[in-house]
Structure formats: C-alpha cells, structure tokens
C-alpha cells in the first residue's frame, strides 16, 4: 500500500447522550476510492464531517500524515484546505459567480494572485464541463451544474483527499449521471476520494473499497466484489437486498 494520508483511530462522536459514532478505525491511502454505504442515520455523514473537522469528534484521533489534527492548537483551517469537501446541498457561495466561487479560496487561502487563480479555476471548470458558465450565479444554474461547480471549487484547492457527502442525493434523477461521470473521471485520474453515497452502482464499479456502516460502527468493509458479491454479515446482506429490490 502507498503511504497513508489519513488514519482514523478509535474515533467516536456523541451529540449529547446520543452516540453517533463508535470506535471507528480505518485509513485512507493515496489513490484509494472508498465508498461509505449504509442506512440513513448510520453515521456516514457524521463520519465525513468529523474527518473534515466540521464536527468535533468526542473521542479518538484523526491522523493526517501521522499528525493528530484533533489536538488542541492545530490550525483546522489549514488542514481543511488539504481535505476538500463536496456537500449534498452544494453550498456554493450565493453572492458570487461560478468563477468567483472557484477563485476566492485560491486567493484567500492559498495566497495565489488573482490571475493565476482565474487561470486554474477556468481549467477546473472546463474539466467538469462548466467552462461556459463562468459568469452565471448559483441561483441561475441547475442542481447538477451546481454540484459540478462545487467539485471544481474543491479541486481548485488542490486537495490531497476529496470527501463527498452524498453528492447526488439532492439531485433530480436525470442530473445524477452528469455528476457521477465527473466523479468517475476523477477516480480514473487517481484522485483520492472518500464518498458517502446511496449510488450502489457507483460504489460497486468505481471504488477500490467499500465500507458498510450500521449503527455508528463500521460493520463490514472490503473490496467491492467481495462486499457486494458475498457479504459476510447478515445485516450487510439485508441492506444490499433492500437496494436490489428498489
């Protein structure tokens, strides 16, 4: 295995008395495409949000290249700039155009010059097929287009890992494909990705590893052929069979 970018050790998260994540252990290596599947409320999204420190874990560690980022005094903003995130609800900046959305982070966080930032923003927008829309505002484009812009915005920060939090769940069915296509291309280019998804076909065909979460723990994990082909645990089988029927 190549070098580990992220190692999650005994991670737990509780909201008050409600224990959402218990003793999560897993790691992300360069080039991995990991899909996290599981029923609603199983803690998938919370796990992703903990990894990006949008939620503060209540226990355990997150090691980024061996350094614990949950420790006091760690510059969370700088860490986040290395770990990109794509949200279910896109979260594009409504007060900016498509281009500005992809420029602002590069200028403010990476301290690039505006010209450089615009150059690379255009390049990434072209990559996701949104090149012609640089002057549009988020309210003027469709959900699928917004999500592609959001991916370009994350890519423009040149992250080591990209986290996807149910990137297609808020989309109309006919728009899911365009976003998944972009994600497949990224995976093929060797981008390290961690994807929370309900798109089983994507998990099966694109990812190098699938994690099934149930009740706040990692119930089963493995390569997609094994997890989809011959799941070891009955709960995993149940979950997958429910999806097959649907």
């Amino acid at each position: 295995m190549a070098d580990k970018i992220l190692e999650i050790c005994h991670l737990s998260k509780a909201f008050g008395d409600h224990q959402v994540l218990r003793d999560i252990d897993f790691s992300v290596s360069k080039g991995d495409v990991t899909s996290i599947i599981g029923a609603s409320g199983s803690g998938k999204s919370t796990l992703l949000r903990c990894i990006n420190l949008l939620e503060t874990p209540t226990g355990g560690q997150i090691l980024y290249h061996g350094r614990d980022v949950t420790a006091h005094g760690v510059n969370a903003a700088r860490y986040r700039s290395h770990v990109g995130m794509v949200f279910q609800s896109f979260n594009l900046f409504n007060n900016m155009t498509v281009l500005e959305n992809c420029v602002v982070g590069q200028v403010k966080v990476l301290k690039k010059t505006k010209a450089e930032a615009i150059e690379s923003a255009k390049q990434y927008l072209n990559q996701v097929g949104m090149g012609p829309y640089v002057n549009a505002r988020p309210r003027q484009i469709s959900g699928g287009q917004k999500q592609r812009v959001a991916i370009a915005r994350a890519l423009a920060m040149k992250p080591e890992v990209l986290l996807f939090d149910e990137p297609t769940s808020a989309l109309d069915p006919e728009m899911v494909g365009e976003v998944l296509d972009v994600m497949k291309t990224l995976a093929a280019q060797g981008m390290t990705m961690l994807v929370v998804t309900h798109e089983m076909a994507f998990a099966r065909d694109v990812s190098s590893r699938v994690v099934y979460m149930n009740g706040g723990v990692i119930w089963e994990e493995g390569p997609p052929e094994q997890l989809f082909g011959e799941p070891r645990k009955p709960e995993t089988r149940d979950f997958l069979s429910r999806f097959r029927k649907a």
Partner: peptide, 15 residues
C-alpha cells in the same frame, strides 16, 4: 444566512 455557506467556506480552508 444559510449555515451551509459557512460550511462551504470552512471546507476550503477559510478562516
């Protein structure tokens, strides 16, 4: 302002 806006900004490393 939608909290998602803050999260979007945080996620690309803005203070």
């Amino acid at each position: 302002v939608d909290p998602g806006q803050t999260e979007g900004a945080k996620a690309i490393g803005m203070t």
